[in-house]
């Protein structure tokens, strides 16, 4: 485990904690896309099938359980919690999941490293994770005055992806035969999706004004 990978995982963990903090403490999910959260739950459910078949490390297993547990509980909160569900921007969060899920599934069926159930599911989860943030970005664009926690949540998620790229560069030079084209391309595409958000995030931070994305 290198420092970029660890920092990436910790940033990812922090993003989930920020979101849970907002939902659990403030009892609000305003500005949070349920569509994106459901896609993440699906991403982790399809990616971590190996949690029961392969043991990598205690760290690995614990983190997988955290991401599975947190993503499903966030979805539960937004859909079913008596108070939280009332703050959900249902009319604004209109992105259709299947527009992302079906192309990702088709791509995974044709472009993968090995044609086994677990491997195709794993590849599907990579493709889906790359685009799962889109409903959230669309919702942010529609929301005037993005609150701090939601802005930080998306920023931390983007930072996590960026750090993973540094992790792959590091591993490429330090580990023999570490070549994973599918992971890398999906990861770079995912990070690029945040470029626009990052620009406005830093602008608002620099000028000390509330984050707002242009329509």
């Amino acid at each position: 485990m290198n420092i970029f990978r660890l920092a990436g995982d910790m940033t990812h963990l922090a993003s989930v904690l920020v979101l849970l903090l907002k939902i659990h403490t403030i009892k609000s999910c305003a500005g949070v896309s349920l569509k994106t959260q459901e896609l993440y739950a699906l991403v982790f459910a399809t990616r971590y099938l190996d949690i029961v078949t392969d043991f990598i490390s205690v760290y690995n297993t614990v983190m997988k359980l955290i991401f599975l547990g947190s993503s499903f509980s966030i979805v539960w909160y937004i859909r079913h919690h008596r108070v939280v569900r009332r703050s959900y921007d249902k009319d604004q969060d209109t992105f259709r999941h299947y527009l992302l899920m079906i192309p990702c599934m088709l791509l995974a069926l044709f472009v993968h490293e090995k044609f086994t159930f677990k491997e195709v599911m794993w590849t599907f989860s990579l493709y889906l994770e790359a685009v799962a943030i889109l409903p959230q970005l669309v919702l942010l664009q529609r929301t005037r005055n993005i609150d701090n926690l939601t802005g930080q949540y998306v920023f931390l998620l983007g930072a996590y992806r960026g750090l993973y790229i540094f992790n792959w560069i590091y591993r490429y030079f330090t580990e023999p035969h570490f070549v994973h084209w599918i992971t890398w391309i999906a990861g770079v595409v995912q990070t690029l999706l945040y470029a626009d958000f990052f620009y406005y995030y830093f602008e608002s931070w620099k000028n000390n004004v509330r984050l707002q994305l242009p329509a």
């Binding site: 990978r5 190996d50 392969d54 990598i56 690995n60 983190m63 991401f67 090995k114 580990e175 570490f178």
Partner: peptide, 10 residues
């Protein structure tokens, strides 16, 4: 070395 069967990243 990471193989395609064992993915050690999250």
């Amino acid at each position: 070395v990471q193989t395609s069967e064992t993915h050690d990243e999250l």
